[in-house]
Design a protein around this nucleic acid. Sequence first.
DNA 1: GCCCAGGAGATGT
DNA 2: ACATCTCATGGG
Length: 277
Amino acid sequence: MLIGNEPLDLRLTLVDSAQCFHWVERDGRFGAVVDGVPVWLWQDGAGLHAEGDCAPGALRQYLDLDRDYAAIAAEYAYIPAAREAFRLFPGLRVLNQPTWEALIAFILSANNNVTRIRALVRALQEYCGERFEGGLYAFPTPQRLADCGEDELRALKVGYRAPFLIDTARRVRDGFALEALRDMPYAEAHKRLTTLPGVGNKVADCVLLFGCGHTEAFPVDVWVARLLADWFGMIGRSRPAMAREARTRLGMHAGLMQQFLFHAARVGAMTLDDKMR
DNA sequence: GCCCAGGAGATGT
DNA sequence: ACATCTCATGGG
């Protein structure tokens, strides 16, 4: 089934840019369970194709295909580093994941590296997520994760994050309104998210950006902090202060720009010549 | 052995 | 509000 033919780099968007950690690649196709439905995606000369019972509209939403990225790039073209990052990665898009999936993945991301986050997400899925045809797994449901014991999760090597996962799953199972975060102002949604165990300032911003459609959310991790210091002169300032100033100066789509800069910094694609101001 | 990784929480000031 | 420490785990 043909889904679209907008600019899109599947490997970059689903795997290499570290917005999520659960897509698998096999024979040039990318597979995962999206909203409880197993899906395989691939591209050819005609565009993006999908196999699975997933609605095309839902996939377009997930992959952010209805947004005009050229317009976003133009919006930030006055910033040399941003202009270069948008030019380098024309097929990169910022995902709209189910909130629960982003929440669990980014609780696991804390003080961890991308390779190991991927291994932990997979281990968690295999341990207590529903299995589908072709070796695809869903994320565990809040109920299933809430029923896990700390020792069970520690056996999966999640370490000190085990109680965070369990306690956050219990909060969601007991009625924490994840879906309401989408329609809430950014500041209020951020404040509510940080009441969850294992969700601090940065993880909340990742959940809001990658799992709630809040494009102004600007996660500041070690890479982005470095980048803001080196390229934007924000030296010796706290990460929350960096995030606050970035949101204020960059506006509604700050988080989209953040993702392009983050990837450029992480793969070492840009040098210090691309300075701003 | 050390330092690092898409940090958070507790405790101190 | 900010500074420091600890928290598992695996790779360089």
